[in-house]
Amino acid sequence: MADGPSEERVNMELTVEAGDAGERLDAWLAKSAGTFSRNRYKDLIKQGQVTVGGRTIVEPKYRVNEGETVRLSEPEPEDATPQPEDIPLSVVYEDDDLIVIDKPAGLVVHPGAGNWTGTLVNALLFHCGDSLSGIGGVRRPGIVHRIDKDTSGLLVVAKSDVAHQGLSAQFADHGRTSALERAYSALVWGAPPGLKGTVDAPLARSTNNRLKIAVVRPESHGARHAVTHWQLKKRYGSRDGDSLASLIECRLETGRTHQIRVHMAHIGHPLVGDADYGAHFRTKVNRLPEGLREQVAGFGRQALHAGLLAFEHPVTGEVMRFESPLPPDLAELVESYETLS
């Protein structure tokens, strides 16, 4: 059986420069090495794969010092052929052709670099056996669309090849000529102007960090058309009357990687808890009341939930519509913001 892609393995040695002294080890590696995400470096540190000055450091929050030599050794790649794993699933609907899952935050959709096990695909292989569509390949059986690891919500997976083809066509068409609908609840910093709006801004891989997405010019290399429609649901103010945060609904006209997260950051209202695209808004946490401040600081993921999914059943033609309430962690956070209103 094949190993994971060898080009993802990294063995490196870096030296901390004066201007970087005092930074967290995981954040410094993400910035200085740039090969993986901060979360991946955090995992590698906890696995004992990072040494500083010859000492193994297992705390991602370790503060680096000027002149320290940091060495990173990636472990040997694991088998890339996913195996069935008994991981609990929240099944919303299932028949012979498809299955709808309410994915929890923290669950990766399919195996890849740094996540060869413990994914939704591993769980589906256990739950569905050999009935998943094989069109997506060995590592992505039945997968027709994805949501980020730290985004919760609804996802449909094909169990038959005919369902895979039909669902893929609907997602490729983005609902222009079909019943496909996708809506997300997002808690963002500040308040967008007006009650609703549209972000029409092409996206591509960031030239500064290939793990991130950026808004680019239409003529830029790799630029892909991306449109997000948003509608204000609730503003949350502070004692001085400013809107510190808002609950909005986002509907996708296209489905690009990190689309909502990047588009909302682009208009100046990044998602609460988004360490990748909202890091520059961390100081706003200090304006929150003490209890809420601690809750936001410890939230640990972007405040985004895929709460609505509708599509035409690719075999029966029936319009299927599913809704998922906010998961407990996000519902509790939103409830806390209600105290500001």
Rank of each mutant, 00 (worst) to 15 (best):
G291F: 00
V285Q: 11
D274K: 03
H280C: 09
G278Y: 04
R287L: 14
Q302C: 08
T283I: 10
V296D: 00
F299Y: 14
N286S: 15
Y277H: 12
N286D: 11
V285P: 06
D276L: 15
A275P: 08
V272L: 05
A275S: 15
G298I: 08
A297F: 04
G307W: 01
E312P: 02
V285Y: 07
R287W: 10
V285T: 12
L304F: 02
Y277R: 15
G273C: 11
H280W: 06
F311G: 01
G307T: 11
V272W: 04
Y277G: 15
L309P: 06
D274C: 06
Q295G: 04
A306N: 03
L288D: 02
L308Y: 04
T283R: 12
G273E: 09
H305N: 01
N286K: 14
D274W: 03
L308I: 15
L288P: 03
V272D: 00
N286H: 14
E294S: 08
G300V: 13
V285M: 09
F299I: 01
L308G: 04
H305R: 07
G298T: 11
L288M: 01
A306R: 06
K284G: 03
G278Q: 09
L304N: 09
E312S: 15
H280A: 15
R293I: 08
K284H: 10
H313V: 12
H313W: 07
E290C: 06
L271R: 04
Q295S: 11
R301Q: 13
R293F: 00
E312W: 05
E294D: 00
D276Y: 08
R301T: 15
L308M: 13
A297I: 09
E294C: 06
E290G: 08
G298M: 13
Q295L: 13
V272T: 10
G273D: 08
Q302V: 15
E294K: 03
L309D: 00
L308R: 04
A279N: 08
F311D: 04
R282M: 14
A297P: 04
L271N: 09
N286L: 07
A306Y: 00
A279E: 09
